[in-house]
Simulated assay, not measured.
Amino acid sequence: MPQKLNHTTLPILAIGALGGTVSMRATQPGTKAGEALFSGMVQLHEGLDVRIETLCLVPSASLCFNLLLEVLIWAQDQVKLGAQGIVITQGTDTLEESAFFLDLLWNADVPLVLTGAMRSSDQPSPDGPANLLDASRVALDTHSRKRGVLVVMNAQIHQAQHVRKCSSMALEAFSSPLFGPAGVMIEHRACYLRKACARTVLPIPRSIHHKVALLQASLSADTVLLEHVLALGYDALVVSAFGAGNVSVEWADLIDQITTEIPVLVGTRTGSGSTAEASCGFIGSELDLTDRGAVMCGLLCPYKARILIWLLIGSGLGREVGKHLQRLGFKAAET
């Protein structure tokens, strides 16, 4: 059961802890990790009904889609119980992917905010407490409503669609290439840099047993894995391609065969920018791959493209991925 720190009719903040660096701290015997995260934060507890629950304690590299669906249900239940804001803490390794997964399914106006830490509590100047406090303030800010899932790190507010972890260990590890942060924290309050936009929310997947392969193009890469994608039973393939969406001649020929059986998405491995639509026509270019049946991901990175197609397949919409990339704003509508 969630831990209640107040028992009055105060604004409700629900906090779910999943583990990660932000949870790496000593606790008193019998104290749950979620409670330990916020112990001593008097400025957070004042005037609030703070409800804290440890949902799991695993490194974020070990999170999975099924567990995130359970987190989604927990968060939806908190809204039904009257929460005005919800915070999820987890490790930063997969934070961008977790946020995008939840954002695609989050249909409430109530803010759902993810945060974590780059430094554990036993290191000098740990950032966890500040990130947690900022995330809680963002979650309770009325201007955060109808913005879907947000990521708060290092006094910046990022939209789940755009945020990326761009550095392995730096405090400023998270950014939103091309788009920039949606807001910043100034004097303990959220200051948004742009208005909330209309969102597209996907249905909850009916099936969860399908699987999506993600393969990255590299110089002189062999084709062994590509040759076995269909035989291994994958339901879709995402290719992390060179530049604006290019692969070798050998990869292009195999993609030609694979697209007849399962969806193939092509994103850029560069970390920023869009795949092209009509720039090059050589074998293995975006024009060639499109002709072979592949779908270019536009501004959506390969990691998040894998999440999108997994959710779509689970709802029976796998062949409509191109339309959803347009609806979600990752590529221009076809003319």
Rank of each mutant, 00 (worst) to 15 (best):
P203N: 02
A33N: 07
V266S: 03
D109E: 15
A160T: 02
I88D: 05
C280I: 10
D134R: 09
A252I: 02
L254C: 07
L18K: 00
E97G: 05
L102A: 06
D288Q: 09
I186L: 15
A278V: 13
V50E: 03
G19P: 04
A173D: 07
R145T: 08
T94I: 06
G20D: 04
P177H: 07
I262G: 02
L150I: 01
G233T: 05
G40W: 07
P126W: 07
I204N: 10
A182L: 13
S167A: 14
L202P: 04
P181H: 12
V149K: 00
D77N: 15
Q84P: 00
A213P: 00
C166T: 15
R306V: 00
A61T: 09
L311W: 02
L178A: 15
T142L: 15
I262V: 07
T142H: 14
H7N: 13
L140F: 10
V201G: 05
C64K: 14
V201W: 07
V212N: 01
R327S: 11
L68M: 08
L72C: 13
V42Y: 12
S176E: 08
A294P: 06
P302R: 00
Q123V: 14
T115M: 05
V229P: 01
E320F: 11
I157E: 02
R145D: 07
L254D: 01
M24S: 11
P203L: 03
R319G: 08
L311E: 07
A241R: 00
S218N: 12
L214N: 00
Y234N: 01
D127L: 11
E97T: 00
S279R: 08
A160K: 00
F65K: 06
R119F: 10
A217W: 03
G245L: 03
L226T: 06
